[in-house]
Design a protein around this nucleic acid. Structure first.
Lengths: 207, 207
DNA sequence: CAGAAAACGGGGTGGTCCCCCATTTCCCTC
DNA sequence: GAGGGAAATGGGGGACCACCCCGTTTTCTG
């Protein structure tokens, strides 16, 4: 890729991050191009659709959430001999207890909660994920979340904490729906986490 | 209201119903005006905002859903002496068992399921309800649903089928979120009902 | 350094929302 | 049944938007 192309790409991405944070997923593409100091045609050449731009904007953050899931999952299985890299600290995940395995159900639900909070607070993220949860092949972010989520869902189901017929698509759809519905309300993150907890626990009194 | 005004109002409403069913909540207002055979200014005079138009479009259907909830609730409490009207048949609700009261929890969950299915199938409905669930005073449809839902939630909580800290706002937000997330998928109604059931039951195995 | 290929961006097209205001339509009174 | 005034209308204009064509500029390579 030519140097000016790469430079413009980065500038557009930076402007898009700012503008989407300000105006949500429906931010004006023209305004983004304007703030990036490029013509609108350049923006459309680099990102042929709004969805493509949103994917690029959110890719790193989604990747971080997936890393978090991966690290949580690694803390569940008795650590196999790991000759690769020293385990990098998870984003903000509670460290797995001692040297043993943490609770698989809690790892999953905790991750889903933080996912919902993050989605509710990050303007435009939930909406940009909405289209693709049903058919994740169309979207890189979706596929990443599905894979990362499955790493937590499988142990949780093996531990009997989640019914076997539940799929990660079900859970991600629910969480994303909650993010979407709570986005914009005050204390969106707490509200999203609360509703996800409610949905995961069910509405009936527990024991 | 003058005769021509009323006539145009009805024509706009009919065109809006068709167009929203076809293109969803983001349907073009100009196109609606065009199909109604009126100028766009007339549309904007009758419906000052898109939200106002959507409310008018969906008002009757929401009212029907509320009536259904009301009838279900009436079947729960041992019928007090009712000197008013003979109990009208609910839209499609299963008749309360025998002469006694049906299960309060099932009445609530069944209604929420049908609400989700209806919202997932009726293009634009979920989105038009999205803005107002958090502060129902702003929206007639919201307020109607909150009131109707409460008629089912209270007995369900009294019967111990729903935890006391759960509010109808929580449940409607969840249901609406699911409708929104499943809208557009094939078998949207079944998918929505399935996810609502999942959220109401929780993901853990039921002993 | 020169030429070719890649990238750029101004500006056009067709669409939207929303509003102003001259014109038309209706209703009420006589 | 006719006419006056108020209510309602809608064409058209402004501001904005997504998207694309194509002459121009920039970059890389030999």
């Amino acid at each position: 890729m030519r140097a000016d192309a790469r430079r413009n790409y980065e500038q557009i991405l930076a402007a898009a991050e700012a503008e989407v944070a300000r105006a949500g997923a429906e931010a004006s593409l023209e305004e983004i191009a304007r703030r990036a100091g490029v013509g609108s045609a350049t923006l459309h050449r680099h990102f042929p659709s709004r969805q493509a731009l949103l994917e690029a904007v959110f890719h790193d953050r989604v990747a971080a959430l997936c890393t978090q899931a991966h690290d949580l999952a690694a803390g569940l299985t008795p650590q196999p001999v790991a000759p690769t890299s020293p385990p990098p600290a998870a984003l903000s995940s509670p460290p797995p207890v001692g040297g043993g395995s943490a609770d698989a159900g809690q790892a999953l639900t905790g991750w889903l909660r933080s996912l919902a909070s993050y989605g509710a607070v990050t303007r435009g993220l939930a909406k940009s994920l909405l289209g693709g949860v049903q058919n994740p092949t169309a979207s890189t972010c979706e596929a990443m979340l599905v894979e990362a989520g499955n790493e937590l869902l499988r142990p949780a189901q093996a531990a009997g904490a989640v019914r076997p017929e539940v799929t990660i698509i079900d859970l991600l759809t629910l969480v994303n729906a909650v993010s979407l519905a709570t986005e914009g309300s005050p204390d969106a993150d707490a509200e999203a986490a609360r509703l996800v907890t409610l949905a995961l626990d069910g509405v009936r009194p527990r024991g």
